[in-house]
Amino acid sequence: MPSETPQAEVGPTGCPHRSGPHSAKGSLEKGSPEDKEAKEPLWIRPDAPSRCTWQLGRPASESPHHHTAPAKSPKILPDILKKIGDTPMVRINKIGKKFGLKCELLAKCEFFNAGGSVKDRISLRMIEDAERDGTLKPGDTIIEPTSGNTGIGLALAAAVRGYRCIIVMPEKMSSEKVDVLRALGAEIVRTPTNARFDSPESHVGVAWRLKNEIPNSHILDQYRNASNPLAHYDTTADEILQQCDGKLDMLVASVGTGGTITGIARKLKEKCPGCRIIGVDPEGSILAEPEELNQTEQTTYEVEGIGYDFIPTVLDRTVVDKWFKSNDEEAFTFARMLIAQEGLLCGGSAGSTVAVAVKAAQELQEGQRCVVILPDSVRNYMTKFLSDRWMLQKGFLKEEDLTEKKPWWWHLRVQELGLSAPLTVLPTITCGHTIEILREKGFDQAPVVDEAGVILGMVTLGNMLSSLLAGKVQPSDQVGKVIYKQFKQIRLTDTLGRLSHILEMDHFALVV
């Protein structure tokens, strides 16, 4: 994948999101292997301009796509893939009243899908469409860049269908997702969380590099694949309309690839034109409109599966009536509230959605109805927002919020430890010299600072030695090549209790 991002070429006709291997024109390309080798690009942008032909009021008969309808489940399912879809609609009884809503608040519980998330729908649909058009064949390999849930859905379907599955996901995604993927037989590649989507090191860039190296491999490409919004247009939206008897006044959905909100909203605009569509985008993402909503100094966020630093091709923002931004604290607070007060075992993005819903639905009156999409299960986040310690460490809970008995030293300040200034190293000294210094002084790690004293990161003896043994660096290389740029900081005025929580999850903390 090139470091400079080429513009994806656009073909003359058809839909841009065809499933299957992508040609340089962004659509299915038939021909000899030699032709494909000559024409197939190194990668295709996940934010390529959409060429979708959908228009409100256009006859369904003019759609270029294969459409399906929700099917009634048999008493005995032939395999677990038949437990994807037909998820329950559940009334939220307490939270709406707590925040003064007059309307009825309903939750579409997508964590009841077989793999635990709304992404099971698009995973199965992308595979079925690729099999139907002859792209996927027995023994082929599926590769997908994902925040985890699409990966789980694909790995689940691949396990049943017999495909090899490789999932490329950023490091910030939970260990629970990784464990589930491994249990399903998927191979996992992790990428830096802070890598831009168009960087060769991003999950998108690495996935395309693997595709170019592995024979008979395919990126189904949830960011561009029409099967993504079509899955929701054909099934999720129809289920909502049936469950609500066609009567709903507002739908609120958090947005990642945009397939969920695009597919549902398009069908609702056709069948229930008075329904307002509300999009939820986390602070630090750029999906919301108008652009002024996205202006923030924050560039990272903890909530998973929603928000991006690019506009995915499948996201149709014209069908969203209003956007709201959400933050991590309210997302996790509301997710825990949904679990504790409503018994809905949902993930953090569901918290984002409901946090926005109780604001947006203030305009609705008694007798009206708001539906929220709860995308995934708490299963993926047992060591994250479900953990009091994690919430404390991230600053989303305060010590006084917890009532468990603490040891005698818990409320003492870090400054009472009488710490001395640490050994520091410059980023320009060599790895070999740094190892000598650390061994001589008896230290395992040291902060790396520039000549102005600005902290650049941390270097550890173990990481340097393993990097040297693996051949990633040489003793003569500058130590700046092996620094940890993500590390926890703590102030002298913070409590030892807070430091204790940090050290339970990290090997060190830097006192500043």
Score class of each variant (00 low, 15 high):
225 N>R: 02
103 C>V: 04
212 N>A: 05
76 I>N: 14
266 R>F: 05
227 S>V: 06
53 T>N: 11
242 Q>S: 06
178 V>G: 04
187 E>W: 09
80 I>G: 07
103 C>P: 01
127 I>C: 04
70 P>D: 11
254 S>A: 06
23 S>V: 03
156 L>F: 05
44 I>N: 13
12 P>S: 12
193 T>C: 07
121 R>N: 01
127 I>E: 06
48 A>S: 13
204 V>R: 03
213 E>P: 06
108 K>C: 00
168 V>K: 02
198 D>Q: 07
118 V>K: 07
154 L>F: 05
159 A>I: 04
29 E>I: 12
228 N>G: 00
268 L>M: 07
178 V>Y: 04
125 R>S: 12
9 E>I: 05
154 L>M: 06
246 G>I: 07
90 V>F: 00
217 S>R: 02
187 E>Q: 11
196 R>H: 04
218 H>R: 15
24 A>Q: 12
39 K>E: 12
37 E>W: 13
103 C>H: 04
153 G>P: 05
145 P>Y: 00
23 S>E: 12
68 T>M: 03
106 L>E: 08
6 P>R: 05
85 G>T: 01
180 V>T: 09
234 D>P: 02
162 G>D: 15
194 N>C: 09
167 I>T: 11
177 K>V: 02
68 T>G: 13
215 P>A: 06
124 L>T: 12
147 S>Q: 02
166 I>Y: 08
130 A>C: 06
251 L>K: 04
186 A>E: 01
181 L>W: 01
130 A>H: 01
243 Q>E: 10
276 R>A: 15
267 K>W: 06
8 A>V: 14
82 K>V: 10
85 G>E: 06
156 L>N: 01
229 P>I: 04
225 N>T: 04
20 G>T: 10
210 L>P: 01
255 V>Y: 03
272 C>T: 11
130 A>Q: 01
109 C>I: 04
224 R>F: 03
45 R>F: 06
152 I>R: 00
242 Q>I: 14
269 K>T: 08
99 F>K: 09
273 P>Y: 02
64 P>I: 13
200 P>A: 08
231 A>C: 11
28 L>T: 10
131 E>R: 03
104 E>N: 09
54 W>H: 06
269 K>R: 12
83 K>I: 10
157 A>L: 03
56 L>Y: 11
33 P>H: 10
27 S>K: 15
264 I>R: 04
115 G>D: 08
84 I>Q: 08
